[in-house]
Write a protein that binds this DNA or RNA. Structure first.
Lengths: 219, 219, 219, 219
DNA sequence: CATGAATGAGGTTTCATTCAT
DNA sequence: GATGAATGAAACCTCATTCAT
């Protein structure tokens, strides 16, 4: 039937609006149903509870980010295992960034929901979870670096901080920059900033090339 | 009387606990009163409403941060007006940072409340407000720099980003680092990181000295 | 379903009792629900709030009075426009009175609520509103009379007073007289009294006929 | 001490304002105390409870009305006992009316409180009590008339109605007419109206004289 | 005289959720 | 699939009043 899909869709749409305006906790299911032109019972046919409704809005986009991160990290670790450490132009990092950005702006509303309106839901710590994933990755990666370049041993806290800052940069981006184009420009600067800061912490002054890397065209 | 002070204090203490555990919105005034061994009416003798109770917990510490920032910013602008731009060792910045850190760790519980548990209260945007203050300050300051060093003209968005990142560094610190001592060490690194990143954005490589500046002893 | 209607009805019944006993303000919704054998939530399914519950009890009867008044007044003004002023036997006035009385006694409990128990509700001035409607009508009507009989020009305050007294007569009736039959007898006297008083104010002594007019039989 | 009196007076003043604005029930003692610049405890030194505070505002003026009525009624009954029934010009009635009016306008604010804002207090039926007093008086008086003029026997309900209407006339006056002067003019009309109506009920057409009677000058 | 802290019951309302139909 | 009545707990808050000081 067409109606099934329509009802569910209407509920999701109405929910997105309500959650965006009031946040998870203050959002009223009654309101959501009313604005969707549907009764409360209908909502509970499609969704287990308030949390499930919220999660349904952001689950898929969030999963895609996790997937991109996972792939990028796996690749980075493989390269480290193979002894290939720093590419000259950070092109891989740029590329992964642009991919993430593209995804984030494709579902910007949903990510804004997740980042700024999730308090009270089961996903209220989704951003922290991402930080933790980064954290673990950089921990592993830093181990590989340290084996090879003993001078670059990093403290746990520093790794954690890096993971945090990196995530914050994306959070800042999505909450403050409206369009993907501007976001890409911003990210180029931010990466430059971070890399410089990064090397600065080891007293190294890199030969930072002209900023390279353009986002790939997406379908 | 002793009882007066005690009741109010007990309420504040109980409230701090409840807000910390559940956040502003989910916190229950009934619970707070019960745990304080007091009736609901008593609470409303001392506090106007739930929001007032929450605000009473963080008002004073927050005001002190605002004061320190205000003084530091005023001084910075005066120096810029007098033509003194960069001190060789960033000692002023360090000093101000340490002062802020000291305050933050003196009332760490309260600031954690303010930063992570205020959603739904009138102070839910207190951190944003601080960003905005920084933003306006750096905007003014950047104008002074640009007049003197035309190459250092910054875009509005960059200024906003700097203000944000700087604030985020403190937020990260207070939420992740337990003691003032560790925080000071962290801040030294972070300032180094930021300064490097900062200059990197203009293609300048400063002669960063050994990290200097120790926090002044507080009474 | 049967239950739907029953619950709403039980609530209205219980509410009528509670409002009658305690008045709008002192009435307790908790009590109303308890006596209706229903939870508080159920009340709020059927009624927006306390005021809506009260208004729901008297809205319909009140509207019917307004309708009867409106029709009677319209007719009176039409007759005045056509030059027909005083019918010999006041039969129209009697008839309208009896119609109003019938309605008032059909829903006597509700009108008692409205007149004596509405303080604090949105209908606390319902009687004043009726006075005002009468007031405007007699103002218009008096203008027509004055055009025709210059000696009968009335002051604004007199008109206002007439409107008030007329309303008070009905208020007195419904609050003091138990049955419609007695009310009809009372009204015949009252109308006679008022008409006499009325003419007395202009120094006219009418040939008041034997009291005529009997209430029409209602279906 | 001066302060004693002042505090009590300030409380009464503040209470009058609050009761006038919100009515007895909605009035808040807290508010009254706050506006009087006094604490709750102080109020309870001077007044037993909320009701006592309200009653204290209107007790004295109300007592004076009761006294005037009582004296007038006593005199009327004495005259009836002595066989003197109708004075030619109703001058006694006029005189008593003007006396009452004078009193009512001397404490108009208090009477407005009593008439329109007393719901919920022990004086919420003060007007009804006055009606009842009138009622009993006219009942007695009517008995005397009926003994003498058998045609003028009145029904209980008619007497009750007369008592009511007479009271309503004063209620209307005080709630709608601003000054004593206007009230006196109004009362002359109203008495004429009532007397005419009154005789009309018995089929008598009196020789109503030119309206006589002027209020006595009060100190 | 007056303070002001504290009581404790009660108020209306909102909410996510369930379930018989 | 969807309705909508009903639950029941809990929410914040206000109030008149009391009493030790």
């Amino acid at each position: 039937m067409k109606d099934e899909r329509e009802t569910r869709e209407k509920l999701l749409c109405s929910a997105k609006k309500e959650f965006s305006e009031k946040g998870f906790m203050k959002a009223s299911l009654r309101n959501i149903c009313k604005n969707a032109g549907v009764t409360t019972g209908a909502l509970y046919f499609f969704f287990k509870d308030k949390d499930d409704l919220f999660v349904s809005l952001v689950r898929e986009p969030l999963a895609r980010i996790h997937k991109i991160m996972s792939e990028h990290f796996t690749q980075e670790r493989q390269m480290a295992d193979e002894g290939a450490f720093l590419t000259q132009d950070f092109s891989d990092d740029y590329e992964a960034s642009f991919e993430v950005i593209h995804e984030l702006y494709l579902y910007r509303e949903e990510f804004l929901l997740l980042i700024t309106k999730a308090q009270g839901s089961s996903l209220e710590n989704a951003v922290d979870a991402i930080v933790e994933i980064s954290d673990r990755h950089y921990h592993t990666l830093a181990g590989a670096y340290a084996d090879r370049f003993p001078g670059m041993r990093m403290e746990e806290e520093t790794i954690h901080w890096i993971a945090h800052m990196q995530t914050d940069i994306f959070v800042y981006m999505i909450t403050h920059i409206e369009t993907e184009d501007e976001a890409v420009r911003y990210m180029k600067q931010a990466v430059r900033y971070m890399v410089m800061g990064w090397y600065g912490m080891f007293g190294i002054v890199p030969n930072l090339p002209e900023i390279a890397g353009e986002p790939k065209e997406k379908a």
